[in-house]
Measured scan of single mutants.
Amino acid sequence: VTLFVALYDYEARTEDDLSAHKGEKFQILNSSEGDWWEARSLTTGETGYIPSNYVAPV
């Protein structure tokens, strides 16, 4: 399991995006899409895309 933590708040801009709150942890499901990674929030269980530069490894 690849875990990352949000460094900043991010507000989803499309229905495919996933909002993130600073300190929230995510499981990365797919990081092969360049700057946008598919992730699952460990807080809400929701999945979507987050900007890779907004997260760091735990």
Rank of each mutant, 00 (worst) to 15 (best):
T2C: 15
T43N: 09
V58L: 12
G48H: 01
K25G: 05
N53I: 10
V1K: 13
L7W: 04
T43Y: 08
S41A: 04
E24P: 01
L3M: 10
L29C: 07
L3T: 09
E24T: 01
N30Q: 08
T2Q: 13
E46N: 12
T43M: 10
R40G: 01
A20N: 01
A56E: 10
T44M: 00
A56H: 08
A6K: 00
L18T: 02
G45F: 07
D17H: 15
S52A: 13
V55G: 02
T43R: 12
G48R: 01
D17S: 12
D9I: 05
A6E: 05
Y54T: 11
S31G: 09
T43L: 12
L42N: 03
S32V: 10
G45K: 04
V5P: 03
A12W: 03
E15V: 12
A20G: 03
I50D: 02
F4N: 04
E11H: 10
P57G: 04
E33Q: 14
R13K: 12
L18A: 01
A56Y: 09
F4Q: 04
P57F: 06
T2V: 13
V55Y: 02
T47P: 00
E15Q: 12
S41C: 06
F26D: 00
L3V: 14
A12I: 03
G48I: 05
T47G: 02
R40I: 11
N53C: 15
A39K: 00
Y10F: 15
P51F: 06
G23P: 00
L18R: 01
V58F: 09
E11C: 13
Y49D: 01
A12F: 03
I28V: 08
F4W: 14
D9C: 10
Q27D: 06
G45Q: 05
D35M: 11
E15D: 12
S31E: 08
H21A: 10
V5M: 08
A20T: 14
S41L: 02
W37H: 03
S31W: 13
P57A: 09
T2N: 12
Y8I: 07
K22A: 11
R40P: 00
E11I: 13
G48T: 04
W37M: 07
Q27G: 02
D9W: 05
L42K: 04
G23L: 01
H21N: 08
A6D: 05
P57W: 05
P51I: 03
T44W: 01
Y49V: 06
Y10N: 00
H21T: 13
Y54R: 08
T14Y: 15
Y8T: 06
K22N: 04
S32W: 10
H21S: 11
E15G: 13
V55T: 02
V5C: 11
W36P: 04
Q27P: 01
R13L: 11
Q27A: 09
T2A: 11
A20M: 15
I28W: 03
H21G: 05
T44N: 05
Y49P: 01
S19N: 10
S52Y: 08
F4P: 04
A6W: 04
S32F: 10
N53M: 11
R13F: 08
L18S: 01
E46H: 12
L7R: 00
Y54C: 15
E46D: 08
R40S: 04
G34L: 10
F26C: 03
G23T: 01
V58N: 04
T14S: 14
V1N: 14
F4E: 03
D17K: 13
I50Y: 02
A6Q: 02
E33T: 12
G23V: 00
A20K: 01
I50V: 06
D35P: 09
